[in-house]
Design a binder for these strands. Sequence first.
DNA 1: AAATACTAGTTGCAATTGCAATTATATATA
DNA 2: TATATATAATTGCAATTGCAACTAGTATTT
Lengths: 133, 133
Amino acid sequence: MTAHAVLVSEVETRLSDAGLPPLAWYDVLWALERADGKRLRMSELADLTVLSRSNLTRLVDRLESKGLAKRVRSKEDGRGAYAVVTASGRAMRRRMWTIYSAAIKELFENHIDSDDAASLDSTLRRILNAARA
Amino acid sequence: MTAHAVLVSEVETRLSDAGLPPLAWYDVLWALERADGKRLRMSELADLTVLSRSNLTRLVDRLESKGLAKRVRSKEDGRGAYAVVTASGRAMRRRMWTIYSAAIKELFENHIDSDDAASLDSTLRRILNAARA
DNA sequence: AAATACTAGTTGCAATTGCAATTATATATA
DNA sequence: TATATATAATTGCAATTGCAACTAGTATTT
């Protein structure tokens, strides 16, 4: 928990120092870029990013107000909406990635050999899957 | 990051369902119980718990208002205060620990063998120390 | 000793978050 | 078909957080 707190706050500081938005924006933008059909329902996006629905609603509001994403009402389900990333959203994610990836390299990769990394990966996945089951 | 989010929120849910306060309260209470002389300066406590100063100030306000901790002005330094845990603060921490420790067992220990645990521990410590250096 | 710079902690304010209630639509039941 | 039930997403409100400014005391410089 301490490692998480320290490292995340270090990444946030670097993003903020570079005049870029918080890490959560990255997660949302990246989830949308990766998604099949380049779009996700609000609730799918909330699940993938591990954000509460209301939290995600307002994060997408902020993205939309900056032109980084937009909502598209669903044809199939009149209640629902898809979130979609815009061209400038993709550009923003790339800019964030230059900072974020450098931080990952410096803070993680430089201090873990590939055995450690594999072990960490498999341990955390196993725990996460168990917690979700 | 996903594992962290899911597991912490699971622990918070269990505490809340048991009518107990958030995990951050546990960290503060426990830091105070462990501390040499059973007390810590506000800034030491903030550092140990990885909370911002203002955040900690208000968390200690809340603990104080529930009678779980109190502030004692420092004799040596008129600006400073020590935070001290009260008897009912210790009792609260023990009650929280019954829930918290059960969650740790169920969510972590049951899914990690001792090699994995040792590896996880050493990897995270190494990364944390490097980030702080 | 006075002036200056520093440190510990708190506070005001704006932004973010979480929960419960709400709106609008879809599905199931009588 | 009307009624009840469930779901997707948003919103209101209260609580929490973060940042910058502030207060009060300590240390350093001249």
